[in-house]
Design a protein around this nucleic acid. Sequence first.
DNA 1: TTGTATGCGTTATCAT
DNA 2: ATGATAACGCATACAA
Lengths: 336, 336
Amino acid sequence: MVTIRAIAERCGCSPATVSKALNGAPDVGHEMVRRIRAAAAEMGYIPNAAARTLKTARTYSFGVLFKEASQAGLAHEFFSLMLNGFKRRAEELGYDISFISSRLGEQELTYTGHVRYRHYDGVAVITAIYEQPQVRELIESGIPTVTVDDEFHGCGCVLSDNVQGVRDLVEYVYGMGHRRIAFIHGENTAVTRIRVASFYRTCADLGLQVPEEYVQPAVFHDPPSSGEATRRLMALRSRPTCILYPDDISYLGGLKVLEEMGLAVPEDVSAAGYDGIFLSQLLRPRLTTMRQDADLMGVRAAEELARAVSEGKAYLPARVVIPGELLPGQTVKRLA
Amino acid sequence: MVTIRAIAERCGCSPATVSKALNGAPDVGHEMVRRIRAAAAEMGYIPNAAARTLKTARTYSFGVLFKEASQAGLAHEFFSLMLNGFKRRAEELGYDISFISSRLGEQELTYTGHVRYRHYDGVAVITAIYEQPQVRELIESGIPTVTVDDEFHGCGCVLSDNVQGVRDLVEYVYGMGHRRIAFIHGENTAVTRIRVASFYRTCADLGLQVPEEYVQPAVFHDPPSSGEATRRLMALRSRPTCILYPDDISYLGGLKVLEEMGLAVPEDVSAAGYDGIFLSQLLRPRLTTMRQDADLMGVRAAEELARAVSEGKAYLPARVVIPGELLPGQTVKRLA
DNA sequence: TTGTATGCGTTATCAT
DNA sequence: ATGATAACGCATACAA
């Protein structure tokens, strides 16, 4: 292994000078710098990250916390795209990215422990159960952290504009003539709370009375549970004319149930999704949905995290809101 | 920061003893071990990975090389699932995983350089352009490496059984009465070469004459290019009755073109995909396709890589072949 | 402008 | 069974 000491010997100078020259310190002679750089290149010198980290307490790498529950995680298009954007931008900014696991060799370890062990400069919580104590511990640990789709005191965060997203959807559906609009929401997370609130608020603004049974719980990304919610809605004496689903995948669960009941979308019931994943635009009828810019969310998360790291104590957490885009498809029928 | 030295002082012993006790060395007294462990837990001791790596030249982390071309990468369900399996199994085996990028801070760096810099114990090439010199350099670097869907001397590899996969598909289509079977393939990779060979071989075994124009080039995961290939096929005087696509996403490109021509699947033309992604089973008609077990491929890659690392010089590279599963859908019509 | 010395936290060797 | 010591490779404060 080629070390700075080897280069120093070759160049007849000290390791300190080599270190400085290679790191662009101002106090090294031009000629010396040239010689050292040349030698380093020729000898195939590669710095040792571990030694550097030991000395500087920096790794130039970000840890990423991904939800581990269910098979979601990486198989979830929305989060995969976000991770992709995060990774790309982080690398541009000079950071590598690693996943945060909850073990160290044989032993269990908290997320915070893991981050300290690996000395990540910053952490992105891309998707996790924020209620989990471990996750809260991490967020409150003082390690630079950016969260996505949830907000914590002292942490930067990137949020999809769920308020406006739901409002746009509801107003669109209303504009198509619907007055009996049902809302199926995911499990109790910040996103869900915001969306539900925005749903009620928008309906109120439009002068719509929302029957309690029109707001049904389900589980994100889980077609069966949205199927069940759909069944409950269609069992009401006053059926909704349009159902809003928590995400595009969940719509599929609803669709299945509706088909089983002999109902067609949008002829008999209208529907809309959320996310705007690739699939949504391939379905026939094409799904009406709210596209979230997952890639951009990832990009902004990386930028925010880099800023948190570089500004250190002086970092003022930002709240980055990414707007969505309504994709009008063919699943919302225009009512007379 | 709690160090081993702090624990030593607290316990009235030397750092060396603490290190041994914490690492389960046999030559420490039971009582001492107990005391040290208790103190470490109480003080919230977390080892320092950098120091450990500097000393031992091991990181207990794997680098993952992901194709960067196009927007594919993480957004590609097949590879996302594979990465997911790889990650899960690697963590079980005590390894963290990081992405390999091609830069070090401001500077460009080869993949190999990056791996040496970070000292990853092993590398998984999940998807890459294997022809790229940088990738070859990495593979030939002597660093424990496992490749997926391509095979290199001295490297462990995990392969989807493309030979049998294509054979099963062709035989299934043949069994449905088709004799004019066309094959659209991806760009020139190991997978493509194997699939094309298997296609020709299987047809020969079935006594089918394959017109040269029935084998058309396209690009993996790129609907437009498969659309073009489809157009070329349908322009032939002797049209195929069934078209095999390089992957499920590519089928969509073909489908679009066929629809534009006023042709229906499978009434007018039959078709099949490859991969068996989630989407394929939601399409109507449901896509006939060959499911690849991406998760298992990832799992086996992690196991193989862990073995390569632990066996070191004595490692005999294995060639792990993962069978696929034919998913008969509704896109291949039974011919009289 | 260059060099010397020191220490980051850990493990490993060797002595006790 | 325990400890003293050195070394891993690098960056930096300070001396020259």
